[in-house]
Design a protein around this nucleic acid. Structure first.
Length: 278
DNA sequence: AAGAGCCCCAACCGCATCATC
DNA sequence: AGATGATGCGGTTGGGGCTCT
């Protein structure tokens, strides 16, 4: 019996994903999840096969994927597990959080295999920050430069020019004083409940977008900014359930693009719920 | 500077397995 | 229990970027 193709391929896009397609897929999964891959592309308005969407999400767009070079420990884990499990890449990937089976398979074939066969063989040319394909850079997380954020999240005290910039934004638009920005979290929560929570979603997101895209936080000027300005350029006049913990965790120095994506997805979900209730 | 060859990795393909009816 | 559809998995490919000559 000949199995029918997983989808009607005539007229569907193939090959590298465009930034717009990535964004559509991320937005759609953020809103509705991915219960049915076969139906997803049609629902999302993507000219892609469901299988292709799944692969793109699982191997690249999923929020919990770790990018960048494999550490020595990860490589040793792969070598050890490959010795135990063989080419069961997905099983190996389960032991390496944030790494995909495809990525592990690639690193095995391109680097680790020859090291195992002959430990004296030198490593292949060291990986540099080589330019990736344009499409693959659409939502690239590996070079977002978020680590340069230096807010002290334990005390919520703003210490740098980033603080000045965001601080003035908060002062101007939310009537938040400098002393507010140095409050401990409990005080801040109280203050939020009494004063800040009446702001509309669009106002809050204007600030969070500015924070996420300002050059202090985003070293890779342009891409993330585009992503967020495009994605968040939606109107909302309703109040949202964005909580102070959410909002002020924006200042955590460990935040990266995954964090911002999670914010986006949750916010969109919240908007959906709020809109439905109106 | 240019081009040939190599390397890397995202994406594809086909088969296996699981889920549902 | 078997048919059918959906998803997962591993092997492979193709093209862009990098290095070498």
């Amino acid at each position: 019996m000949v199995r029918a193709p997983c989808c009607q391929k005539i007229g569907l896009n193939r090959g590298p994903w465009a930034a717009e397609e990535d964004q559509i897929l991320v937005n759609h999964i953020g809103r509705f999840g991915h219960g049915n891959w076969r139906a997803l592309p049609k629902q999302a308005g993507l000219l892609r096969c469901g299988k292709s969407c799944r692969l793109r999400w699982m191997n690249y767009l999923r929020p919990d994927i770790k990018r960048g070079n494999f550490t020595r420990e990860e490589e040793e884990t792969i070598i050890r597990l490959h010795g135990e499990l063989g080419n069961r890449w997905s099983a190996i990937a389960k032991n390496l959080p944030g790494r995909t089976d495809n990525e592990i398979k690639n690193v095995w074939h391109t680097n680790l295999k020859r090291r195992v066969m002959d430990p004296n063989v030198p490593l292949k040319r060291p990986k540099k920050n080589k330019q990736k394909r344009e499409s693959s850079r659409a939502l690239d997380r590996s070079d977002s430069g978020f680590s340069s954020c230096v807010i002290d999240s334990s005390t919520m005290t703003m210490e740098t020019s980033l603080g000045d910039r965001i601080g003035s934004k908060l002062e101007d638009e939310f009537n938040v004083s400098e002393s507010d920005l140095s409050m401990d979290f409990t005080t801040l929560e109280t203050r939020w409940n009494s004063d800040f929570s009446s702001h509309a979603a669009s106002d809050l997101l204007t600030v969070s977008t500015e924070i996420s895209t300002c050059d202090y936080v985003c070293g890779n000027e342009g891409e993330i900014e585009r992503f967020w300005s495009d994605t968040l350029a939606m109107e909302s006049t309703v109040e949202t359930p964005i909580s102070p913990s959410y909002y002020f965790n924006l200042f955590n120095s460990d935040n990266d693009i995954d964090f911002w994506r999670a914010i986006l997805m949750d916010t969109e979900r919240d908007w959906q719920e709020v809109s439905q209730n109106h």
